[in-house]
Amino acid sequence: MSLKPVLGAIVALLRNHIQVGTLDAHAVQTATTELAKHHYKYDADLFPPLPSNNHWPAPTLAAPQSLAEALLWKMGKWQIYKSFVAHYSSTSSTPKNTDTVFYAFAKHLQNPARPIYDQHALRALWAIDTKLTPQQAKICRNLLAKKDGTWKSIITGSNTSAGYDLYAERIVDLEKGGASLSALDKLLMPLGQALKGNTVNVSEFVKLAGCGE
Score class of each variant (00 low, 15 high):
88 Y>Q: 08
188 L>N: 08
202 V>T: 12
174 L>D: 00
102 F>T: 07
103 Y>N: 03
116 I>S: 00
162 A>C: 01
133 T>M: 02
90 S>E: 01
211 C>E: 04
197 G>S: 15
110 Q>Y: 08
106 A>F: 09
99 D>T: 05
152 K>C: 14
125 L>V: 05
201 N>Y: 14
93 S>H: 07
122 L>Y: 06
108 H>I: 08
175 E>D: 05
169 E>N: 14
186 K>F: 06
109 L>C: 09
206 V>L: 05
100 T>F: 00
101 V>H: 02
198 N>F: 14
201 N>R: 07
120 H>S: 07
125 L>D: 03
186 K>P: 01
210 G>V: 01
126 W>Y: 06
201 N>D: 15
86 A>Q: 11
113 A>S: 15
158 S>E: 11
164 Y>L: 12
90 S>C: 03
105 F>Y: 02
109 L>D: 10
203 S>I: 09
178 G>C: 03
176 K>R: 12
193 Q>M: 09
187 L>K: 04
187 L>Y: 03
209 A>R: 10
161 S>K: 04
87 H>N: 04
157 G>D: 04
171 I>D: 04
93 S>Y: 09
144 L>I: 13
165 D>Y: 03
114 R>K: 15
186 K>L: 06
150 T>S: 15
169 E>L: 15
183 A>F: 14
169 E>S: 14
156 T>H: 03
100 T>I: 08
102 F>V: 05
147 K>H: 11
129 D>S: 13
186 K>G: 01
164 Y>N: 11
